Computed example of a mutant assay.
Amino acid sequence: MSFHQDFFTLNNGNKIPAVAVVGTGTRWYKQKETPENVNSELVSQIEKALTLPGIVHIDAAEVYRTYPEVGKALSQSKKPRDEIFITDKYSTQLKVTENPIVGLDTSLERLNIDYVDLYLLHSPFVSIEKNGFTLEDAWRQMEKLYKDGKTKNIGVSNFSVEDLEKILTICEIKPQINQIEFNAFLQNQTPGIVKFCQSHDIVLEAYSPLSPLQKRPENSENDQFYKFVESLTIKYSKTEAQILLRWVTRRGVVAVTTSSKFSRVQDAQNLFTFDLTDEEVEEITKLGLKHKAQRLYWNEEYDKYNVQSQN
């Protein structure tokens, strides 16, 4: 079977692979970066991913402290740069570099590349007191990086409707992406965010899309959601992860995933060898909404929205 890859078109006309197969956060995140704790397993995983056909999407961020691994893998890869899609993020919550411009200049140097394909503000929690600039100031810096060609696309992460409205009020270039925690058990990270982004032509990206598999309840064998997903694995001869990732993309959302097992990275890159029917997508959505919100990140900030997140 020939290789096929799906893309989403952004509001500037550029395209983004519908799946990022190597997220370098979550499983690979480090509290501290030292010359001694370079993760050779992550280097190997990225190197292997870069041998796969199609455009390989790698998701990075300065707060993950995995630039050494990403940079080393890129330097050893023979894959053309235009077949690699690199997402990077500026840390607003935990200050790593002075501001978005310094942040991206630093990462470009450390990764030994001329540009990233997507640059995001990692969260909306910005203030003069903490950061030395406002959220609006940060966005204007993102626009400058875009105009200077240091990033092909710009966006945000973990932004609510209210946060995006602040940007949309002042922006010259509106965000192309909002990367949020999204899965069948968390279908709105914050109230109304999915509908808002889709109505404003801002593509959503889902991190932790496989949360229902990561924190499976003890009685999952009797749960209608898991029973239905299992029935689809039999019908399509695919894994549970592939079914849920395909559901994410069918919802019009980019899926960001990762794994320590290369076979699962391959499965993600080869996700589009099958499709779910509209009825199956709707059924996963409906059964997922019967579960309480399952939020792995930003609990302190967003747990207050748990009931609304599954409406």
Rank of each mutant, 00 (worst) to 15 (best):
H200V: 11
A49D: 05
G149C: 03
N39K: 05
I177H: 08
T134I: 09
G155Q: 04
A49W: 03
N183T: 00
S75P: 10
P212F: 02
V265R: 10
K304E: 11
E300H: 08
R216T: 13
E280W: 09
K238R: 15
V56R: 13
I234K: 14
N219L: 09
G192D: 02
V248L: 13
E165Q: 07
N270E: 14
N99E: 01
R251S: 15
M142F: 07
I234M: 14
D223E: 12
S91P: 04
N178P: 04
R65W: 12
L74C: 05
K48A: 10
F262V: 13
K147N: 11
W28I: 00
L213N: 13
K15N: 02
D88S: 15
R81F: 07
Y302W: 06
A73Q: 04
L111V: 01
T66Y: 07
F185A: 14
F133N: 02
E240F: 15
N12I: 01
K78G: 15
K290L: 14
Y146F: 15
E282V: 10
V19H: 00
S123Y: 07
Y297Q: 08
K195F: 12
A49K: 06
P191V: 03
D163Q: 06
K261W: 11
E300M: 11
N158S: 06
W298T: 02
N37T: 00
R250Q: 14
I154D: 04
L271Q: 10
I58A: 08
A73R: 09
F274W: 12
V161L: 13
F85V: 05
K152H: 13
S199C: 09
C171T: 09
L168Q: 06
I180F: 01
Q176S: 09
L50R: 07
D275E: 15
S107F: 01
R250Y: 13
K30C: 01
K286M: 15
F196T: 07
E129V: 11
K166S: 06
T87N: 08
E69L: 03
R140P: 12
K78F: 09
D267H: 11
L135V: 06
P100E: 00
D303I: 01
E41P: 01
T9F: 02
L186H: 04
L245Q: 11
K72Q: 14
V70F: 08
Q214I: 13
I86Q: 12
E181Y: 02
L50C: 06
D59T: 06
P217K: 10
S157I: 05
E165C: 07
G103L: 02
I128L: 12
L111H: 05
L164W: 04
P212D: 03
N306T: 08
I177E: 14
E98G: 13
L145K: 09
T151A: 07
S263F: 10
T134W: 08
G155M: 01
S123I: 12
Q176C: 07
N188D: 11
I113E: 00
D59Q: 06
